[in-house]
């Protein structure tokens, strides 16, 4: 048996980037689902908790969690690895006068910073929600957190970092996976920005609760499609 082909995913630059890109895209997809779930908060306690209960009743959830963990680890490890290689290659502000040549964006130039910010935020997020006391009920736990100014400011920062990270990461992953063509590359770029901007909804949601708007408005009714999925 010859496993050289699979090994190259780890031993070559493009292989590592492929892992980073593929895991990144998967994580971006996860974030979109996560966002959709969070939006259920708008529909009120019953709807949100009902969905969470439905999820938790699935026996495959621990497996999915491990999968998610692997995705995160793969993304983080290959990301750091690639970064170290790039450091060795003599990159980063090589010149006395360093300036963009016109290719970089704020998102791309800050990838490593948003990455570390997200990592820190991830740990915080896990402590706060994943390993927290779930007995008060999920809706209660989340909305309570969202009424805490300090928490919301961290949460907003995390969401913005994520948006920035994805503004480059999404289309970059497609490029790395070889999916770039003059015909549709602008569509991928646009989709990347749309995904990035949608991450701001996380932040808006927390602010919504912080300002107590949920108390002022009745729970929103979800669009018809979502309704049928939930029920």
């Amino acid at each position: 048996m010859n496993f050289k082909f699979a090994l190259r995913l780890f031993t070559s630059s493009i292989g590592r980037k492929t892992i980073m890109a593929a895991s990144g895209l998967a994580l971006a997809f996860f974030m979109l689902v996560h966002l959709a779930e969070n939006l259920l908060l708008l529909k009120g306690e019953a709807a949100y908790n009902g969905w969470v209960d439905f999820l938790l009743s699935n026996p495959l959830i621990p497996v999915a969690e491990i999968g998610l963990l692997i995705l995160f680890l793969a993304h983080i490890i290959t990301g750091l690895w690639v970064r170290y290689e790039n450091y060795k290659a003599g990159g980063f502000s090589k010149y006395e006068e360093s300036k963009s040549q016109g290719g970089r964006t704020i998102g791309s130039a800050t990838m490593i910073y948003t990455a570390f910010a997200l990592l820190a935020y991830l740990v915080y997020h896990m402590i706060h929600f994943r390993f927290a006391d779930h007995s008060v009920g999920f809706y209660q736990m989340v909305t309570e957190a969202f009424r805490n100014k300090l928490f919301v400011s961290v949460y907003v920062a995390g969401a913005l970092a994520l948006a920035l990270h994805l503004s480059h990461g999404f289309q970059s992953a497609f490029q790395t996976l070889g999916l770039n063509h003059d015909k549709y590359s602008f569509l991928i770029k646009a989709a990347g920005y749309a995904v990035a901007v949608s991450m701001i909804l996380f932040a808006m949601l927390s602010v919504y609760f912080l300002l107590g708007m949920d108390l002022r408005f009745a729970p929103l009714s979800a669009p018809k499609v979502l309704e049928t999925v939930i029920n």
Binding site: S13, R16, K17, V82, E85, N86, K88, A89, G90, G91, S100, Q101, G102, G103, R104, T105, S108, A109, M111, H168, Q171, S172, Q175, T176
Partner: peptide, 8 residues
């Protein structure tokens, strides 16, 4: 180094 798709 590795490409980080910054397109410089």
């Amino acid at each position: 180094g590795n490409c980080s798709n910054e397109y410089e």
